[in-house]
């Protein structure tokens, strides 16, 4: 577990560097005026924390500072930390597994967020846990998407159900669900084509895939995961909202969180949508898609920060 936490800290290094260091820089010996709060807004926004979330948070902080008669800017830092923790710690929960029969996980998202790669990593991890895994290549649209998934399947040593390019994704899904039951697999993951959430017909198509699963296997899909690209800005919330309306999402996979300073998006999604973040992507390696643990996340984000302050002293 130490290894995982180490990876988490490394993956969040950038977020920490910008968000926490900036906050610490800001709160050093400042007057609590409009300018101060505007800079606080800027710092939080810079971490892609979402305008609405930030505005609300800063209002609350202002109010708290007024009520508690806080005059020192340094005292603002722990309040910010508290606010962020408050939002994040409401989060939680792993995957929902079927009580019996195959667990079906549908994976959706806009183009280029990392759906197929996330599926590959999950497949590898499930397989390592001793589960029997099946993949469904229901992205029949993008050039070579099926090949990509197939190569990953070979790599992870799991089975795949596929049709040819251009086939009906609902039909692929149908076959895959049947196969999942007859082959008695533990988990079936359905890869879907990237689609923009403002395309009504494509959103209806993905709704149909869900209905096919539900019809063939009651109570399925057990998980409908939306993959978001952590480098995405404000639009991420809009994506989550639209997919949630169509599909009732059960969770979010936040891919590509490493290398960006944008860990703040986790806060904004938690706050504005109330959809749990279940996995976060922290690197290219197969193990780098990690279960999201809000407590560890908060710890990784703030732990070193308080130490760092002393070092710089």
């Amino acid at each position: 577990m130490v290894g995982l936490f180490g990876r988490l800290k490394k993956g969040l290094a950038k977020t920490k560097a910008s968000l926490i260091n900036n906050l610490q820089g800001l709160v050093r010996g400042r007057k609590l005026d409009d300018e101060f709060y505007e800079e606080l807004e800027d710092i939080l926004i810079q971490a892609d924390m979402g305008i609405d979330t930030v505005m609300e948070m800063v209002e609350e902080i202002k109010e708290e500072a007024r009520v508690k008669k806080i005059g020192e800017s340094e005292e603002i830092f722990p309040i910010v930390q508290e606010k962020i923790e408050e939002i994040l710690l409401e989060q939680g929960g792993g995957l929902n597994w079927a009580e019996e029969g195959p667990t079906i996980i549908m994976v959706v998202g806009v183009n280029g967020v990392g759906k197929t790669t996330s599926i590959a990593k999950l497949a590898y991890q499930f397989k390592k846990e001793g589960k029997k895994v099946l993949l469904a290549a229901a992205d029949t649209f993008r050039a070579a998407a099926i090949d990509q998934l197939e190569l990953w399947a070979q790599h992870a040593g799991v089975q795949i159900i596929k049709h040819q390019e251009g086939a009906d994704p609902a039909a692929v899904t149908y076959d895959a669900v049947k196969a999942a039951v007859s082959r008695d697999v533990d988990v079936l993951m359905v890869d879907t084509a990237g689609r923009f959430h403002n395309r009504k017909n494509l959103m209806e198509e993905v709704g149909k895939i869900k209905r096919v699963i539900d019809r063939e296997l009651p109570n399925a899909p057990h998980e409908i995961l939306l993959v978001l690209d952590a480098t995405t800005g404000q639009n991420a919330v809009s994506q989550a909202r639209s997919f949630n309306e169509m599909l009732d999402l059960t969770g979010i996979v936040l891919a590509k969180l490493d290398g960006t300073a944008k860990g703040g998006i986790v806060v904004s999604i938690s706050k504005e949508l109330n959809i749990p973040v279940k996995y976060i992507g922290l690197g290219e390696g197969m193990e780098d898609l990690q279960k999201f643990d809000s407590r560890e996340f908060v710890e990784a984000l703030f732990e070193e920060a308080s130490r760092g302050e002393d070092d710089e002293g």
Partner: peptide
């Protein structure tokens, strides 16, 4: 560059 990119676009 993806038009949806957030604050990190400058760094990229």
């Amino acid at each position: 560059v993806d038009a949806m990119t957030g604050q990190d676009a400058v760094n990229v």
